[in-house]
């Protein structure tokens, strides 16, 4: 079973295409990871905001989760349209996307992790985004890294 990390980016779409071409008909879980507002703040060291974060947090979280669900469904649909046997999944951190992806991979016993080399991050000087970089360094299973269309 493949774990395909999907964030709606061109690279993520390319990752689904590559997985479908290389491993036709494979079972797949398309996961979109997200993080609760308060956890994101905590990671950024801003947790002293306290009560304000609680109120804003609940609203943001609803949006984040809904967005993640839409993304995961979109990814699973694209995967199925290409012959994979995919189900969508969302996972709320806490933690950086890479950590969450790795946790889910361990939890599901995935045969491989598939992801785009980059996502939506703006630091385009990096050819390999921070998430794929971290996943590669910590994965105890095969990782398929797929460049985006602009990288060809």
């Amino acid at each position: 079973m493949l774990l395909i990390a999907y964030d709606g980016s061109d690279h993520a779409k390319a990752a689904i295409e590559a997985a479908a071409k290389l491993m036709p008909g494979a079972d797949a879980v398309v996961v979109t990871v997200w993080e609760r507002y308060i956890d994101g703040l905590a990671r950024a060291g801003a947790v002293g905001i306290g009560g304000i974060a609680d109120d804003a947090g609940a609203d943001f979280d609803k949006h984040f989760e809904a967005h993640a669900q839409r993304m995961a469904s979109e990814g699973a649909a694209a995967a199925n349209a290409r012959g994979l046997k995919a189900t969508p999944r969302t996972e709320a951190g806490p933690g950086a996307p890479a950590a969450t992806i790795l946790n889910v991979a361990d939890h599901l016993g995935a045969d491989a992790i598939v992801l785009g080399s980059r996502g939506h991050g703006r630091i385009s000087a990096l050819l390999l985004g921070s998430t794929s970089n971290q996943v590669l360094h910590h994965a105890a299973r095969p990782v398929l890294v797929v460049p985006g269309p602009a990288d060809d």
Partner: peptide, 20 residues
Amino acid sequence: LHHAHRPVIVVPSDCVAGEK
């Protein structure tokens, strides 16, 4: 990984997986 314009599959060996 940093220069490929095509998919790359990186496989950790057992000992690497163990270290991780």
